[in-house]
Design a protein around this nucleic acid. Structure first.
Lengths: 237, 237
DNA sequence: GTATGCGCAACTGCATGCAATTTCGGCTGC
DNA sequence: GCAGCCGAAATTGCATGCAGTTGCGCATAC
């Protein structure tokens, strides 16, 4: 019964493998979080413990722990004795979160300008160039995927994992409200042009310009969210 | 279906009154968090569920939920099937967190410079002046308390609650490693002088200078932490 | 004396059950 | 017709119990 496939040399580059075999609560939390960020669970929906338990074939106990995790992450809201619902921040708070994310990314970009090595800068430029081709071809879906990677390069290039985590958490919490982003093809080209300003500033080592370019980029995308902020509460599907 | 027109116009600006009667898990989480930030639970200490349950007169269930909350907050670390310990970040990560906090506060200060109204600026200046008297008198404890309030004024003055939450969370996570701060009386005077640069920049509406002053301030205090980063793990007292 | 394998104690993960609170149905009264 | 009240169902909060795993101590072999 003792099989230990246990990392014989090259288990993988595993940057951090703290949870070898995740507990059910963690698996559940991940599943629910994905359902929220991908839009399968809309903001305002009620999350009943028993239903989630039955849905995932477990008891209520791990469900409750998963909900605690998600509540601390901010993806859901728990009212004592009144159940949990998918977080539905008020418009004012959404604006705050978006501004905070812009500032976080601006800080990252500023750090990138001085902290990135040659290899990282080359990778960033390569990604940018590839995205230019996608934008020219109008490949919206591929561009969106590559876009996530682009911003993650900014997080990683800053050389500050904690800052990157803050930015990624914020990005996740905003995900349900950014569905309509990159809607039009002109927006695609505009996005790429704004990325160009960011990349140029970073390659030049100009932290101030890089931060400003990021703020401009995110201010330009700001109009594309908040469309589903006024829905009435609903049951879980 | 059942529509609930809830939110009668202005549901209430109520900034935050979500937990009328908190659940035991939340109470526990708060208690343990305080114990950690105030140093009664040192980094690396093991947190056994049964012991915590007995200590607080509850069963293991709410303890487990509280630990989940704290793990998501980053104050503790949970290894599946191996228990939880008070978080003990490696020195490199501590440095990252401190840098991130400096940048967060710098962003706040920059926003303060343009977002603060006359009344808020007056309150900030008043607080700064009062702290000047405390520094002159060498009242370290009173200065430290007032210092927390000073930084909270910066968070609040930025007009972005989410950003303020990020900053406060980070500050809490760093709390166990900042015990020796403001050690000498010269540090007290220096701190006040650095605050003066921040206040001046904000009052003048100079966002760039305000951010730079905050970075300088936190860089100067950076040397006072990390003393307890190398202890071996220990049992809970 | 050091290294290896086995067995036990301790602890965590999860399921189940009960009590308390909230919510919704219908009813009474105005 | 509408507001207020009361009782039952639904749902959450918490305690308890059991199975599985981890870690440690001890005996054994080299």
């Amino acid at each position: 019964m003792d099989e230990r496939p246990d990392s014989p040399g090259a288990t993988g580059p595993a940057p951090d493998a703290p949870a070898r075999r995740p507990t059910r609560a963690e698996t559940l939390a991940e599943a629910i979080a994905s359902a929220i960020t991908e839009g399968r669970l809309a903001p305002g929906m009620a999350l009943e413990e028993e239903r989630l338990a039955a849905l995932h074939g477990v008891s209520r106990t791990p469900v409750r722990e998963a909900l605690r995790l998600l509540a601390a992450t901010g993806l859901i809201e728990q009212r004592p004795r009144r159940g949990a619902v998918v977080a539905r921040p008020e418009p004012a708070r959404l604006a705050e979160m978006f501004q905070a994310m812009a500032e976080l990314e601006a800080v990252c970009a500023g750090l990138c300008a001085s902290a990135m090595g040659r290899a990282e800068k080359a990778a960033l430029y390569a990604r940018h160039a590839a995205m230019g081709r996608l934008a020219r071809d109008g490949a919206v879906d591929a561009y969106r995927d590559a876009n996530v990677g682009f911003h993650e390069l900014l997080y990683a290039g800053a050389g500050n994992r904690y800052l990157a985590e803050l930015a990624e958490t914020t990005r996740r919490r905003l995900a349900p409200f950014r569905a309509a982003q990159l809607g039009g093809p002109d927006r695609l080209a505009a996005s790429h042009a704004e990325h160009g300003a960011i990349v140029t500033a970073i390659l030049a080592g100009d932290a101030t310009a890089a931060a400003a370019a990021v703020r401009a980029h995110l201010a330009a995308t700001e109009g594309a969210w908040g469309l589903m902020a006024g829905q009435p509460p609903a049951r879980m599907g």
